[in-house]
Design a protein around this nucleic acid. Structure first.
Length: 212
DNA sequence: ACATTAAGTGATT
DNA sequence: AATCACTTAATGT
């Protein structure tokens, strides 16, 4: 497998050549398109996913139709929770949905486990990912409990565009509304304001970020 | 051309 | 800010 991208996306891991070689041996690369579900509720997780490119959305769904957006995973990021989740053979409590065409490096859990002792770079990577996820969760709590909708929307757009190479988001107002637990109309109106302020431009299923 | 889906708007609570 | 009712616009068949 061609593993050159690891040096770009995961520079901390790339420092250890042996680790890189082993990753190349055991990992597989999977591609997903927008909307595909990568991990669903109740799934047993067998791989630690590492995002090479694209964007994943990690969400928690309630009994009704409401969902909470926990965080995004962009390139160079990984979901450490999946690691512990499969270590204790628990079913997934969360859902991972592909937000835009993505490539994911899948590390079989048995290796991910074994590398913890074998490679300090890997161990540091996993710990850093835990820390990063925890911080973004705390951030999320702040957002959902305190922020007003217009602030949430700004944060959402910012978060989304920061994980992308270009400034164009292919998403409908409806989808945003679901992610933010708001009504579609509110989102449309707020977006309209942002457009009037020259921060974004709108067209069907497309939002171009000009300057937030 | 028609149906469907996305988005815009005003009124009401 | 949510909901409703309705309009307008874009897109698919």
């Amino acid at each position: 497998m061609n593993i050159d991208f690891i040096k770009d996306q995961f520079p901390d891991l790339a420092k250890d050549q042996k680790l890189i070689e082993e990753i190349a041996q055991v990992a597989t690369i999977k591609s997903y398109n927008k909307g595909e579900v990568i991990i669903d509720y109740g799934d047993y997780i067998k791989y630690v996913p590492m995002v090479i490119s694209g964007l994943l959305k990690i969400i928690r769904e309630g009994e009704n139709d409401n969902e909470i957006l926990l965080y995004f995973l962009g390139s160079g990021e990984s979901c450490a929770a999946s690691f512990s989740c499969c270590m204790i053979k628990k079913r997934s409590e969360i859902k991972a949905v592909c937000e835009e065409k993505s490539k994911i490096l899948m590390i079989p859990i048995s290796y991910a486990d074994q590398w913890m002792g074998k490679y300090s770079n890997w161990r540091d990577f996993v710990i850093n990912m835990y820390d990063a996820r925890l911080l973004s969760l705390i951030d999320t709590i702040d957002r959902v409990s305190f922020a007003k909708l217009d602030e949430k929307l700004l944060y959402y757009l910012d978060e989304m565009v920061s994980h992308k190479s270009d400034q164009v988001l292919n998403i409908s107002h409806h989808e945003i509304a679901l992610d933010l637990n708001a009504s579609r109309e509110s989102i449309s109106r707020l977006l309209k304001k942002l457009e009037a302020a020259g921060k974004i431009s709108l067209s069907r299923n497309e939002i171009t970020i000009i300057d937030l």
